[in-house]
Amino acid sequence: MANIDQAKYAALIRKYFDACNEADYDKLVSCFTPDAVHYFPSGLPDIPWRTADTIAKKWIWCVETLGSQWTIEKILVSHDSHEAVIEWTHWKSRVGTALRGDEWYVFDEKTGLIREIRAYYASPAQKEVPINELVDFDYEGRGYHLNAANAPAGAESK
């Protein structure tokens, strides 16, 4: 069985989300292996994002252009592999929308850094919908963030 430091991986994901919200290039790059890849569903230009440098620059662009902020809703770290899955909300204040989804993380066994992220959206991104999320899912009743302002950067709901 692999020796997995679940707390270390969860802390790295929180650091990554804080870095995204802060648009901090150096902090973002420090979360990834240099050759990291971030995969997305179809619909975005220039995907997947390859290299830590590209990932950092793209998220900074989102903060500066879309007013992006992210909240972590849930984190699950594997006990027997160097992987984790999270549920998040991507708030886009300048365009008045939000998107909910999940990401699957693969960590480098030697460095402990993020090597790969695979993003999955709760629904197709629809520009005419204020918050893209699952139909009839009780987000409020389950303690999910209902706007970006009610949680600090990288916060996790309880």
Rank of each mutant, 00 (worst) to 15 (best):
A52D: 07
R115V: 00
T54K: 12
A122G: 14
V95S: 14
V106Q: 12
L113N: 10
R115G: 09
Q69G: 14
Y120L: 00
K74S: 03
W70R: 05
I86P: 01
Y144D: 05
V37T: 15
E109M: 03
A84N: 01
E133G: 13
A84C: 02
V37Q: 02
T97L: 05
Y121S: 09
V95E: 15
W59L: 09
Y39W: 07
F40R: 03
G96M: 09
K58M: 10
F137C: 07
Y144N: 08
K127Q: 12
N132Q: 08
W91N: 14
S78F: 10
T51H: 08
D138H: 06
G67P: 09
G96P: 09
W88P: 01
H90P: 00
A122T: 09
F40Q: 10
Y139P: 08
V129Y: 05
R94W: 04
L66Q: 12
Y120T: 00
W59H: 14
I117S: 01
P130L: 13
V129H: 08
L66A: 10
I114H: 02
T111V: 06
D53R: 06
G67R: 06
W104N: 07
R100E: 04
W104S: 09
A36W: 05
T33W: 06
L76T: 10
S93D: 15
T97E: 12
K92H: 12
P124T: 05
G67I: 07
I72P: 03
W88R: 01
G141T: 11
F107A: 04
P48D: 12
V95C: 12
V95G: 08
C31P: 00
T65L: 01
I114L: 06
R50A: 13
V129C: 08
A84D: 04
Y120Q: 00
I75A: 01
S42H: 08
T65Y: 06
W91D: 11
I75S: 03
Y121V: 08
A52K: 03
Q126C: 11
K110C: 01
P124C: 03
S42K: 13
D80I: 11
L113W: 02
R118C: 07
S42T: 13
A56L: 05
Q126V: 12
R118M: 08
F40S: 02
P48G: 11
L134R: 14
S93C: 05
I47R: 13
P130I: 10
H38T: 08
L76C: 07
S68A: 13
D102T: 06
F107C: 03
E109R: 09
I114D: 06
G112C: 02
G101L: 00
E133D: 09
R142Q: 13
G141Y: 08
Y139M: 07
I131M: 13
A56Q: 04
Y144G: 04
N132L: 08
H79I: 05
W70N: 09
R118S: 10
G112W: 04
D80K: 09
K127H: 08
L113M: 11
L44T: 07
G101W: 00
E133Y: 02
V85N: 04
S68F: 01
W49F: 12
R50Y: 08
D108E: 04
Y139N: 11
R115K: 15
P130F: 05
I117Y: 00
T54V: 14
G112V: 03
D136S: 10
W59D: 13
K110A: 15
